[in-house]
Amino acid sequence: MIFLGIDIGSLSCDAVLIDEEKNILASSVILTGAKNIESIARAKKNVLDAAGIMEKDIRSIIATGYGRARVKEKDAAVTEITCHAKGIKHVIPETRILIDIGGQDSKAMLLDPDGNVVDFAMNDKCAAGTGRFLEAMARALEVDITELGDLDKGATSDLVLSSMCTVFAESEVISLIACGTEQKEIAKGLNRSIAARTHSLVKRVAGNIDGLTVSMSGGVARNKGVVKAIAQSMNLEKINTPETPDIIGALGAAIIGFEKIHR
């Protein structure tokens, strides 16, 4: 039996296929774009083609992410919070604190030793510290979003962006550029401001993180600079990141499908 998880987020649409042993058969990450129904179909086709599997072989489809209701063929919709927790438990089982920074939301979750969510906190309505925020900053710095992760290498100053708001932060970055501040210093300042926000979210679910393994999922976990800044802010040696952080939600969804059948 094959299980499909689809995570349709604001920036990317991810799909994961797993088998009876919860092995990942295929995964796909594409941009959601303006028409999310088309993206869902495309992501699904990608994984089916990659794994060489027919649609009729799929035993269950679980949808997650903000567009989960739009997945017509789903068996159930489960929120990305539960799915990310489930997904990370599979790849980094010792995780007790999970940080997930997605396109429009950032979240901190406290998990019990069995991987169940005990508490969670999400950013408020504004996009500060999320993937969208980084996109806006990359735009202001005139770099590609994928270059942002290494941009802070060699930065030495302790510049911190004071503005929390995406709009203000963007104009702050522009004025820093105008003042001749080096790109790497601005990038580091940016990472620090995201780290402060994220750390604050973690504090809301766990006052004391001593001895708890911290992991991070979501697309922003690919950004080494941000991950490092969060670890520094939380006084941690490291934060665990899965090899493919962006598919953790979809993986969790697929596993939930598997567990629903095998319950």
Binding site: T79, E80, I81, D105, N116, V117, V118, D119, F120, K125
Partner: peptide
């Protein structure tokens, strides 16, 4: 409506 994910995640929890 914007609270849907939070509320659903809460009930899942």
């Amino acid at each position: 409506g914007q609270q849907q994910t939070r509320i659903e995640a809460f009930t899942e929890m």
